[in-house]
Each structure stands twice: as C-alpha cells, then as structure tokens.
Amino acid sequence: MLRKSLLTIAMLSSAFSMTAQAETTEVNIYSYRQPFLIEPLLKAFSEETGIKTNVVFAKKGLLERLEHEGANSPADILLTSDIGPLSDAVAKGLFAPFNSEIVNKNVPEQFRDPEGRWVGLTSRARLVYASKERVKEGEISSYADLADPKWRGKICTRSGKHTYNLSLIGSVIAHDGEEKAESWLRAVKDNLARKPQGNDRAQVKAIKEGVCDLALGNSYYFGKMLTNEKEPEQKEWAASVNLIFPDQEGRGAHMNISGAGIAKNAPHPEAAQKLIEFLTEQQAQQYYADANFEFPVRPGTPKSDLVKQYMGDFKGDTINLQRVAEQRAAAAKLVDKVGFDN
C-alpha cells in the first residue's frame, strides 16, 4: 500500500514538473510596439532564459482580438505604446494581476497599476514644441499658457481624440477637475491655427512652415526627426523648434508610457512574468533609451546621448497613470463638447 502511494506521488510530481516546464518554455506576445523595438530584446531574453517567444505585431485591433478570443486566446502578454490600451484592457477585465518584487523594485509607483494589472516599460513627456523664430524664451511655461488669447491662431495639434491627447486632457481633469479642464480645452481650441490633423511630427513641420508657432507632441519624436536619414527634411523641422517641458514650477510635464500586462487567460503566466521582469532590467531599459529616444522607467538607467544633450533633466508629473487613465472617457466627452476637432 505504501509502495503504491509513493508511486502515485512520484507520478504526480513528475506530471507537475512537466506542466511547469511547459508553462515556462515559451511565451506568446501581442504587440502594438514596432518590431525594431521588440525583436532584439526578445532574442536576448530567449538567449538568457531559454524561453521561446512568439509575437503578433499590429498597429491596431489586438485588444479586440484578445477580447474576442476569450478563454481560448493564446496570448500571454499585451505590449502597448500608450496607457490607453492598458486602461481599456483593465476595463474589459482582460488582464490578470501579478506581483513581482523585481518589477516593484525597477519601476516607480507612478508607472505601475495599483492593483498590479499593468506596468510601464518606457516613459515619454507630452511637451510643447515652440518656434525658435517666433516664440521668445519664457513666453510659455505651462499647459495653462496654451489657453492664453495671445496664442490665438498659433497652435497646432493632432486630433483631440487621439490617445496621446486624451491622456493629457485626462491628466488636467485629474489635477484640476472637469470644470476647469473644460474651460482650458475650450480656450486652447479657440487658439488653434487649423483643424486638428496629422501626427505629432506633422505639427512640427507646420511650425517650420509658419502655419503655427506652438504644437503639442511627444518628446521622443524630436530625436526621431533629428536623426531621420531617410527623410532629411525632418531634421530641418526639428531644428526649427525649442522643446518646452511645461509646469516645471508646478506638477511637472505630463508623462505617458509604453507598457505591458499579462492576459487573464495566459497559457504561460510564469514565462510572461519573467519577460516583463526582463524588460524592466538595465539591459532592456538601455536599449529602449538608445533605440527610440524614450525615457527609461528604471531609475539610474542613463538616457540616450541625444536626449541628454537636448532635453537634460526635467520635472515630470508623478501622478499615478491609472488615475489619469480613469479620466480618458471624460476627456473624450470634453473634446466633443467643446467641438475641439471641428
């Protein structure tokens, strides 16, 4: 009887070991982030851990795919380029909370969901691009200044409904309340030089061409324009502007992230957590900084040389981004209410 029990235990232990091994031998990734940013890191991760990585890259639709697949989804991780999809995944119940001492050590609290459902991997600032020729030093120093009537007909931006702008507006709501945010957004709308259009780089081009004097844009686009050998005219766009990090005497520049979450029905949750931990370590953080001119979330990781030269140190808003994300729906309603994109 004892022999039979021991044999049963041995068989169960063996089965458990095989299951655990299967769970950690591969990881499936849905990625909104571009291949050049991810593939070298995944290769390094596989070489270090022996875990195979399988990736689906797409510019849109991955969140909907994850939701549609439900319990049958093969996805372990969703990688995003903004807080928006992370927040949407939380709202739809698509992420499984996880707790990692490594992640908690490497990533500041402001870039982690309080309930462990997502984590930031890189950060960027939503700054103001200002014409070197037409905007004097000190003329604008805050997001509130964008509402000043002196800038009537002189501001360019992409759609207010774009996720980058929704996050910025959401941060204004989180800090100042919806009523003040509406007044601010309405005044900024009155100052627009043209109907919101294009991407962030298109706004800098508009400044170079004299269409406007100020524009909202993410910080890393400056580096991408300044080093663009395929379209060298973008170097001229970048050279025509100064970078203004708003609210340095107040709450600091609005920060956003690229990030990741583990799928609720992940087939390989252990491997997924290992990958996320790897992406918060020094090697991966340094690669992100050098390859895409983003800011590392891991304290102590050096910024790229270009970023250090043109952006230096600045004060970033430390509000937890989940609080900002929770205001994105209200932000979208304000965009419609004031007719921002009309």
Results as ranks from 00 to 15, higher is better:
129 Y>C: 07
45 F>P: 05
209 E>I: 09
227 T>C: 00
314 F>V: 07
134 R>E: 12
140 I>K: 02
21 Q>L: 15
39 E>K: 12
292 N>K: 03
319 I>V: 10
311 M>W: 08
204 V>A: 11
136 K>G: 07
47 E>T: 08
193 A>Q: 00
103 V>F: 01
285 Q>F: 06
306 L>P: 04
279 L>S: 01
44 A>P: 01
51 I>C: 13
158 R>K: 12
326 E>M: 13
258 S>G: 15
121 L>G: 04
8 T>Y: 12
147 A>S: 11
132 K>M: 06
203 Q>A: 13
214 L>R: 04
270 E>R: 14
195 K>I: 11
51 I>A: 08
211 V>H: 06
4 K>A: 15
96 A>I: 07
109 E>T: 11
61 G>C: 00
204 V>M: 13
148 D>P: 04
228 N>L: 09
176 D>Q: 14
3 R>P: 10
166 L>M: 13
232 P>R: 07
340 F>R: 07
271 A>T: 01
88 D>K: 05
326 E>C: 03
198 G>F: 06
184 W>H: 06
272 A>G: 03
25 T>N: 15
31 S>Y: 03
294 E>N: 09
59 K>V: 02
252 G>R: 08
199 N>L: 08
282 Q>M: 06
332 A>M: 05
256 N>R: 00
225 M>T: 04
4 K>T: 12
305 D>I: 07
11 M>C: 14
211 V>K: 09
21 Q>W: 14
234 Q>P: 00
110 Q>W: 09
181 A>R: 02
244 I>C: 01
32 Y>A: 11
166 L>G: 02
138 G>L: 11
232 P>A: 10
292 N>M: 12
266 A>C: 10
47 E>V: 03
287 Y>K: 00
270 E>P: 05
219 S>K: 07
50 G>A: 06
235 K>Q: 13
188 V>K: 02
25 T>E: 15
221 Y>W: 15
32 Y>Q: 08
160 G>E: 04
179 E>P: 00
149 P>N: 06
200 D>N: 07
260 A>P: 03
53 T>W: 01
204 V>Y: 08
170 G>L: 05
245 F>W: 03
4 K>S: 13
7 L>R: 12
246 P>V: 05
158 R>G: 09
57 F>C: 05
106 N>D: 11
224 K>D: 15
193 A>G: 08
